[in-house]
């Protein structure tokens, strides 16, 4: 955050895209992420096979020209299941990040602007949430509200709140003593308005990078919860549950576990790489350290 000039800080950098695309991590990440997003989007209109029917005769077929990724224990096409499952993973991760941002960022900004006891309360609240191993709490949340995609979103979203609150607060705290902020205050602008007009735009890049990382963590967390049977419920396919079902079929059809696992890895890897690349591009100081 070596930026000083408010005008330049706030204005979008026209070179960002070019620089981002020149960044190898970002480019690879972008391609992988787009592949997953496209697979999910395509599944709204077309999948190689339907995924609702049960066809016992065709079960546990190895990968072939007809079924690229083989079939599962109900005879369903695994490629089709993965495509539809992508929607679930993306939706859960996206909404969870949204919850984290919408609740966490205002909280962090508010704490930074007001300081004092409010700041202390928000930060201690964060400590309490952080003290709970996330997965354990998610298991408890789904035990209370019942398993399902919506409750998985809530469980994951809650743990995004303190993450974004911290990032927003730290970013804002670093900006408040800046000259141009002090100047704005001297000019009589209120704290709320300064936060809206000067702080938020200037921490946006931090939030975007964190958002990408939380998105990929969200995909992993969703997979973990569905693996434990607490995520999206059948017949809606989810990558984690496909793995849970595949686990007992390993002796008969290892491909049933292989492909959903690879899908998770590609999605997480894609968004992680994108986040890393973005950080390099948007945060020159960190880049120098690398």
């Amino acid at each position: 955050m070596a930026m000083l000039d408010p005008a330049r800080e706030a204005a979008p950098d026209p070179g960002v895209w070019r620089r981002a695309l020149a960044n190898r991590s970002f480019l690879i990440g972008l391609i992988l992420s787009i592949a997953i997003l496209l697979a999910g989007a395509l599944s709204f209109f077309w999948t190689p096979y339907g995924i609702s029917g049960v066809n016992v005769a065709a079960r546990l077929q190895a990968p072939s020209a007809a079924h690229w990724f083989g079939t599962d224990h109900f005879g369903r096409d695994i490629l089709s299941m993965i495509m539809v499952g992508a929607r679930n993973s993306i939706a859960v991760a996206l909404v969870a990040v949204g919850i984290g941002m919408l609740a966490g960022v205002p909280l962090g900004l508010w704490a930074a602007a007001r300081g004092g006891w409010l700041d202390a309360v928000v930060m201690r609240g964060n400590d309490v949430v952080f003290a709970f191993p996330a997965l354990l709490s998610a298991v408890m949340i789904t035990a209370v509200f019942g398993p399902g995609a919506v409750n998985a979103i809530i469980a994951i979203g809650i743990f995004n709140v303190p993450v974004f609150a911290r990032v927003a607060r730290a970013g804002a705290m670093a900006l408040w003593p800046r000259d141009y902020i002090l100047a704005a205050r001297a000019a009589g602008k209120g704290k709320g308005r300064i936060t809206r007009e000067h702080i938020l735009p200037n921490i946006m890049h931090l939030l975007i990078v964190q958002g990408t990382i939380q998105f990929s963590l969200g995909i992993l967390a969703e997979a973990g919860l569905s693996y434990l049977g607490l995520g999206a419920q059948p017949p809606a396919p989810s990558w984690g549950r496909m793995l849970a079902e595949a686990q007992t079929m390993m002796a008969l059809g290892p491909h049933t576990a292989l492909f959903p696992g690879l899908a998770i890895i590609i999605a997480v890897l894609g968004f992680n790489l994108m986040g890393d690349g973005l950080r390099d591009v948007l945060d020159p100081k960190l880049k120098a350290a690398r």
């Binding site: 029917g53 049960v54 109900f74 017949p235």
Partner: peptide
């Protein structure tokens, strides 16, 4: 129940 339920639903 879990597997059977999916089939019966279908």
């Amino acid at each position: 129940a879990r597997r059977g339920g999916e089939i019966i639903a279908a």
